[in-house]
């Protein structure tokens, strides 16, 4: 009787061990299956890898461009690095006069220059522009903003609705100021000379 019981116990143990081994085998093959098919991808891990690749690409681009760039002109916290290896087509090619005229035309209004001046200090909602420029009616202001946007001097956010001055917008505004200052200087000089 006791031998029978021992045998049964042994059989039970063996069955349990066998079951355990089957479980392990199943888990291992599932793991292998996942690895083989690439089924499990953690989205956060994927994103980190992706961003890592992007940033590496950016750094590589910067290194490559710096190698080709020689002339550095720092002024007022700004450094412009210009490639000297090849002549840049934008500097030698003529600008389309029609496009240039459209941009100059967008600049050619006192109100629009005032709008650009307001935007030089940062993005603004139309209500803020209206408050700062009470001499311009709201419909006229909208029309001026449309013209500035059309010329690429201003961009409007779709979500928040703020108006922002673009890089060409800043350049255009600075250019208008520089020309005006230069002309005033010349007038002063002529006056001093008694012309």
């Amino acid at each position: 009787m006791s031998e029978d019981k021992d045998l049964k116990d042994e059989m039970k143990k063996l069955k349990e061990e066998l079951q355990g081994l089957k479980e392990q085998l199943r888990e291992m093959s599932e793991g292998l299956e996942h690895k083989r098919k690439g089924i499990y991808i953690d989205v956060n891990e994927k994103l980190s890898d992706y961003l890592g690749d992007v940033m590496e690409g950016v750094a590589e681009g910067i290194r490559g461009e710096l190698k080709r760039s020689i002339f550095i002109s720092p002024h007022h916290g700004e450094i412009k690095i210009i490639s000297e290896e090849k002549e840049r087509p934008e500097e030698t090619a003529r600008t389309d006069p029609a496009q240039a005229a459209a941009i100059m035309s967008a600049l050619g209004h006192e109100h629009r220059l005032k709008v650009l001046d307001e935007l030089m200090s940062g993005g603004k909602y139309i209500s803020e522009l209206q408050n700062s420029l009470p001499e311009i009616t709201s419909s006229t202001l909208s029309s001026h903003l449309d013209i500035l946007q059309e010329a690429g001097l201003v961009v409007q956010e779709r979500v928040r609705g703020r108006y922002l001055i673009t890089i060409p917008g800043r350049m255009a505004y600075k250019m208008a100021n520089a020309i005006t200052k230069q002309r005033d200087k010349q007038i002063e000089q002529r006056a001093d000379l008694g012309e």
Binding site: V54, M55, G57, V58, G61, I62, E65, L66, S69, G77, E78, I79, K80, I81, I82, S83, R88, P89, E90
Partner: peptide, 28 residues
Amino acid sequence: VDISPAGVLVAERGKTIVIGKNNILIDS
């Protein structure tokens, strides 16, 4: 960070790097 066919732009707290088709601008 903005990457498009027009170029690459990286801006971080007042510092900017723009890589265009024909130029690069580093600004702070």
